[in-house]
């Protein structure tokens, strides 16, 4: 006897394919959708259906956008000479939230991961070189994460762009705000000391 109706079971299966969602969480989400008014499910399904039709990659920075170029690349008030290189669209959103960066972006869409078969050719690195060669960029800020793959990707980019006609900078790395330095590991602390900045 089938306990879960097939339509609900299908939704649970589909939600369970998303990262970080197991069958238990998928069941909870599916039941939540079911308990809400029917309009909510219709809106959700419409939003999902329109996703691929309305969103594309910006041909300049490779962010997800409804227009090409995206809102950031098309904004004349932003500094197009400064380009921040990030791993994923989510990183762009995190930097935008700070409201302290007014340049453009370049999204690599991943990091070097030999075990997953992701080498330089699988990332948007050739496109970054083409962008530098266009002559509009004066500074590249490499803002990949401080994880092992993120740092390895940054090191690769720094080697590759060593002779590029641009200023090359790397996101600072050190003690997070609100952290007691007693709890920092020695590598982070050493990096923070190496990257110290003038206080006056």
């Amino acid at each position: 006897m089938q306990v879960i109706p097939p339509a609900l079971d299908r939704l649970i299966d589909d939600l369970g394919k998303l990262p970080g969602i197991g069958r238990k969480t998928a069941t909870r989400l599916a039941l939540n959708v079911l308990r809400r008014p029917v309009g909510y499910a219709q809106e959700l399904s419409q939003a999902l259906a329109e996703l691929h039709a309305s969103i594309q990659l910006c041909s300049c920075c490779f962010a997800f956008s409804e227009s090409d170029p995206c809102g950031i690349c098309a904004d004349a008030r932003r500094d197009g000479e400064l380009v921040c290189v990030v791993e994923e669209p989510g990183d762009l959103m995190a930097i935008e939230k700070t409201a302290s960066f007014r340049g453009h972006y370049h999204i690599l869409h991943g990091v070097l991961s030999p075990i997953d078969g992701i080498g330089p050719d699988e990332l948007k690195i050739q496109e970054l070189i083409a962008r530098i060669n266009s002559g509009t960029v004066k500074e590249i800020l490499i803002a990949t994460s401080s994880t092992v793959p993120g740092e390895a990707t940054a090191s690769y980019l720094i080697d590759l762009l060593q002779n590029a006609p641009v200023k090359l900078t790397r996101l600072a790395c050190g003690i997070p705000m609100g952290m007691d330095i007693k709890y920092a590991d020695r590598h982070t602390l050493a990096r923070a000391i190496e990257s110290r900045s003038l206080a006056k």
Binding site: I115, I132, L160, N163
Partner: peptide
Amino acid sequence: IISWTMLRSTLQARTIDWDIQR
């Protein structure tokens, strides 16, 4: 071993001809 492909490719130095000068 999937990583072997990249191990081999990292042995070849990549040089870029920059179209513009600093």
